[in-house]
Nucleic acid binder design. Structure first.
Length: 617
RNA sequence: GGUCCCGUAGCUCAGUGGAUAGAGCAACUGCCUUCUAAGCAGUCGGUCGCAGGUUCGAAUCCUGCCGGGAUCACCA
């Protein structure tokens, strides 16, 4: 039962009856009453003033009087300026509670029924381990996927893996040159970290080579000839690095040759590539599992870039694109303000955008989806505008339902993460750290001593991960956020563990209900609704629309705020009112039933954020 | 320079047309012989970047300006 639509109909009826005006019910402005006023819902009557040609307070008075007379569901009203505050009867709320109790899918709806969605999140490179940025990406993607399912959609989770190119060749080369037969197995290093280590080793070796070169005659000559006015030697060589890699560097030459051999399909190179990427995937998989993240299918750039080329060639035949003098294929997007974009190089090789075209089409062949969402950082906004425009022009069937969930970067209190300065926060380290913090806290608090160690560790895992996930999800995705390590492991205040704690209290009540065999049927006539009970019912009532809003806006932060709010309201009631020890059996039964539904809602809501709930903590 | 995003308490963030702008953290003060104190209650803290405009009503919408960022590669 939706209280708001009930009130809309009732108020539209009142207006028709008392003012002889027909106003569409959905146009009425109804909102939850501010907590510092008496009432459950508020009608704003200012917008009605001109249509009804009366002063707002008077309109409010008349509607209020009408409602209270005609509807037993409305128990009281008061008017403050043009605001009509309405209280609903305890009986009405009780019926609402019963309804929620009977629905085990409270919060879901069916407005997306029949729709098929592919959602891409987490697009790692294979030369580096996952970091904090990937965490925000994955958690957002995973939560949004669940929220879309809550709308009744069929959802497939996919990722795209950038598994080829010069970067992975650097790791391969460094391992070949200096690896001395080391493997993840014989060193005990996690696969993705292992490969990342060789990438770093390459960069280090390359920098050493570069610095040595800078002292050479050749370098001096280049500097003398190419320096800009007033440019110091240091500045010059900083900018010159890429060119050095491509023209003078020994290591650079070897890496490029390796890339060439890869493209030609040379068996040894391909085997080495497959082996190193295999190590990386095993490492990634471990991290995904720790986070409770999974994918229905992985797409590899190495599989899709050729299909992308075919699509561009087809577009060229159809006259959508044009061939430039140098043989490259380009597209003119000036008319939509996106400039001119190169789609294939003169030598026929593909670009970033080309492979994304292929990947998109391949997904359609796999799933025949009618929508696709990409969860990718906001530095790629332009890329996705171009991609979506191209898919539209190519006539892809899902092209009018493409969405880029563009999320902001995660920064540290000291500023941006920089791999060169070693300030990148590693995903695995962070996960371990939050769990360790939860463990430390649990030990300080005591109270877990009677539990077996594995159970304790399971709780600490859930609490630690809840802290991390909630911390990253409570912020609006569009915003750049500051990641404060100390705050992220915090277990108090506006955090995941706070919500878990409210839930754990409720589970404690539940265990007592079972143990003592309490009957909860006495509450059918509970009349004396306490304000904090009312507030909890309000929170429950809003839950489905919050879930819907979070899903439609691709913004789990709405849900996170609401769950925090609900837990807070419960904790307040916990302190204000005796629940189990309530003297009155009717009150006790009612509060227990209410608590039970709140617990279920917290559990379900946190699950939509990808957060697990412990039974005790 | 073009395009887009951001600017709310010391810090991290909610609030995007409705009432006196809210939380958490930090600082300070109370509350555990009673259902888990990872909790509750309270104090302190604001020219919602600035200036105009629209509106019965603006942190929220519009215009201009200021400050910060992203992007505008035949890199990914």
């Amino acid at each position: 039962m939706d209280m708001v639509s009930f009130l809309r109909r009732a108020i539209a009826g009142a207006i028709s009856e008392k003012f002889d005006r027909e106003l569409p019910a959905e146009k009425l402005q109804i909102m939850p009453t501010r907590t510092d006023f008496e009432g459950d819902f508020t009608l704003v009557t200012f917008p009605l003033a001109s249509a009804l040609s009366k002063a707002p307070p008077q309109i409010a008075e008349e509607i209020g009087a009408f409602l209270i007379e005609k509807y037993p569901e409305v128990s009281a009203f008061n008017v403050v300026k043009g605001f009509l505050n309405l209280s609903l009867s305890a009986n009405f709320w009780l019926r609402f509670l019963e309804e929620v109790e009977q629905k085990d899918d409270w919060g879901s709806n069916s407005r997306g029924e029949g729709q098929k969605l592919v959602i891409e999140y987490c697009s790692p490179n294979t030369n580096k381990p996952l970091h904090l940025g990937h965490l925000r990406n994955m958690l957002l993607g995973a939560s949004c996927a669940l929220l879309q399912e809550e709308l009744g959609k069929k959802v497939w989770r996919v990722q795209v893996i950038n598994d080829r190119g010069i970067a992975i060749c650097k790791s391969m080369l460094a391992w070949q040159l200096f690896g001395k037969g080391e493997t993840p197995e014989n060193t005990g290093i996690k696969g993705d970290h292992f490969v990342g280590k060789w990438y770093v080793a390459f960069e280090k070796q390359f920098m050493a080579e570069y610095e040595a070169w800078q002292a050479s005659e050749e370098a001096r000559a280049v500097f003398a000839e190419r320096r800009k006015k007033d440019q110091t030697e240091k500045d010059f060589f900083k900018v010159f690095k890429n060119e050095y890699f491509n023209t003078y560097s020994q290591l650079g030459r070897q890496a490029r040759e390796m890339l060439l051999r890869w493209e030609q399909g040379e068996p040894d190179t391909r085997a080495l590539w497959a082996q190193m990427n295999g190590w990386v995937y095993a490492g990634f998989e471990e991290t995904f599992e720790k986070l409770g993240i999974s994918f229905d299918k992985n797409y590899y750039e190495s599989d899709t870039y050729l299909l992308g080329r075919e699509m561009v060639e087809k577009g060229l035949e159809k006259g959508l694109f044009f061939k430039a003098e140098d043989g490259s294929v380009q597209v003119d997007l000036e008319d939509v303000g996106l400039g001119t974009k190169v789609l294939l190089r003169g030598d026929g090789t593909t670009l970033y955008i080309t492979q994304d075209l292929g990947t998109a089409h391949l997904r359609y062949e796999d799933f025949a989806m009618d929508e696709m969402t990409y969860v990718v950082a906001d530095e790629q906004n332009y890329h996705f505008k171009v991609l979506f425009e191209l898919l539209k022009r190519l006539g892809e069937p899902y092209a009018d339902k493409l969405y880029h969930l563009s999320y902001g970067m995660v920064e540290l209190p000291e500023g941006k993460m920089k791999s060169r300065e070693g300030t990148v926060v590693d995903a695995d380290d962070l996960i371990a750290e939050v769990i360790a913090e939860a463990r430390k806290n649990a030990e300080e608090r005591g109270g877990q001593d009677e539990l077996p160690p594995e159970q304790r560790e399971e709780i600490n895992r859930k609490v630690g991960l809840a802290a991390l996930k909630f911390y990253l999800l409570k912020v609006n995705p569009a915003k750049w956020m500051t990641f404060n390590p100390a705050e992220s492991v915090d277990l108090q205040g506006q955090t995941g563990p706070y919500v878990q704690y409210a839930y754990v209290r409720i589970r404690g009540l539940e265990r007592r209900i079972q143990k003592e065999g309490i009957s909860l049927s006495e509450s059918v006539n509970y009349e004396a609704l306490h304000p904090s009970e009312r507030a909890l019912l309000m929170g429950l009532h809003q839950f489905p629309s919050v879930v819907e809003q979070a899903a439609l806006e691709y913004d789990p932060s709405h849900l996170a705020s609401h769950l925090y709010q609900l837990a807070k309201t419960f904790n307040k009631m916990w302190h204000e009112l005796p629940i189990f020890s309530a003297g009155d059996v009717v009150a006790r039964a009612f509060r227990l039933r209410l608590a039970r539904v709140v617990g279920r809602t917290l559990h379900r809501g946190m699950a939509l954020l990808g957060i697990e709930m412990p039974e005790r903590m």
